[in-house]
Structures are given as structure tokens and as C-alpha cells.
Amino acid sequence: MSATDPIITIEHASKFFGPLKALDDVSLTIGQGEKVVIIGPSGSGKSTLLRAINRLETIDQGTIMVDGQDVNSSKNNINAIRQELGMVFQSFNLFPHKTVRRNLTMAPMRLKKLSLEEADQTATHLLQKVGILDKADVFPTMLSGGQQQRVAIARALAMNPKIMLFDEPTSALDPEMIGEVLDVMVTLAREGMTMVVVTHEMGFAREVADRVIFMDGGQIVEVGTPEHFFENPEHPRTKKFLSQIL
């Protein structure tokens, strides 16, 4: 367990798609600054769990607390909670009608009431950080997949979130572009960001994760440090999965 204060607390979360259990009594606590990598076969519920944290998916049972606030409670403003949670998608989902720079400034200006200059300054800084400042004024469709995903990460960071959620951020990328995106994520991890990452990139998990979580059939099957995971996994399902992908 992490020694720091918990920032995400998931208790007995379940979600059903008809007879299918997408999440089956999942409990998990994530500490501040912790890097958690969730792995598992497709359909194991790992993306559903990640998306439930910022309520892109609602859960049918259980509770999910983010920074002390229940995300499923109607008393809490989900839009405010979401500002604390940066989200990066598999398919980038940049806004194609806005330039790269405007993709980054739109939300801070509207939601944090930043002035254009302030937002621009942040955007410049973040684009420099992800290495695409030279493409600031083009439209996203002019960029490669790797570049788009780096912009998407910068866009999420522009809201200055406490936690970053990554939903298979490299799965839609050509192999030669995966590295540039992972590099940005590693840098972010080194800076102490709390990160929850659903991925198939085992190298990334090994390098960055504090804890690796293996999910299958909507349940958390095994939790451990990367060393534990990749050197001597215990559960047969974990072993089977790792033997298939490594």
C-alpha cells in the first residue's frame, strides 16, 4: 500500500451491461503521487474502471471518491471534479475545429476564467514540454498520431489537474510513434503526477509503475509491484496473460 494520503478511493464498485459484469466488486485505493498501471485482456473491465473514475461510465453499485468527493453523488458538481482529472484517450479526441494552441486554451479560459495571455502562456509552456511548440498554430488533423496524442496530454495538463487518467494512450499509434508519447508520460511521472494508466506497454509499466494491477472478468485479480509482477506472478490467469503478451 501507498504511504501517502489516498486521492482516489474505489469501494465495491460494480457495473453491469445486461448479464455481463463489466466491473465486479472492485475496491482500490490510489495514493497521492502514485503511478498505477492497469493491465489485462480486452473486455476485462480495465477501461470501464478508468472511465468510472471521472464518471464517463456510471457504476451501478459501490462508491468512487476522488479527492474526498463522491463522483456519483448528485450533491457534488461532476464538472468541477472532472477539472481535477485529466483524461487522455486512445483516439486522442482533439477538437478538429480549433488549432493546437486553442485546443489547450479553450478549457482554461472558459472554466478557470484565465485571460487569453495567461492561457496562451500556459499553452506555450506545455507545448514546449511535449515538444510540439512549432505546431502550435496548425489544426490537429495536420499532425501525426504521436503528435496528436502529445497535444492531447498537454490539453489535459492545461487544466492543471491533480490526477491524470490514460486510457490506452498508445494503442492507436503506429509503432514508431509510441516512444515519443511514452517519453512524455515518463517525464510526467518523474514530476510526481498521480497517474492511472491503462496500457499494454509492459516496458512503461516496469519503468514507471508503483503498482501494477491485473484485471480479468471485471475483477482485480492481482496487485503488486512491477518486480513482483514480471518476475514471479502468482495467479494462474496473470501468468497466462503475461506469457501471451511478453
Binding site: 464517463l56 468541477a80 472532472r82 477539472q83 483524461m87 479526441n93 477538437f95 475545429h97 490539453r155 487544466m159
Partner: peptide
């Protein structure tokens, strides 16, 4: 318009009306 656009906007913290008028309708 792709559902991902709505998800991206909502994830940033835009409410439904902002998402519709700033992200979906312009596209």
C-alpha cells in the same frame, strides 16, 4: 460528430451546454 468529442469536452470539465455550443455544434 464522434462521441469521443463529447467525452473529451466533458472530461475537461465542460458542462453539457458548453460542450454542445463550443465543441459539437461548431463541427
Amino acid at each position: 460528430i464522434d462521441k469521443g468529442q463529447t467525452e473529451a469536452a466533458r472530461s475537461l470539465g465542460f458542462n453539457r451546454i458548453e460542450t454542445m455550443f463550443m465543441v459539437i455544434l461548431p463541427q
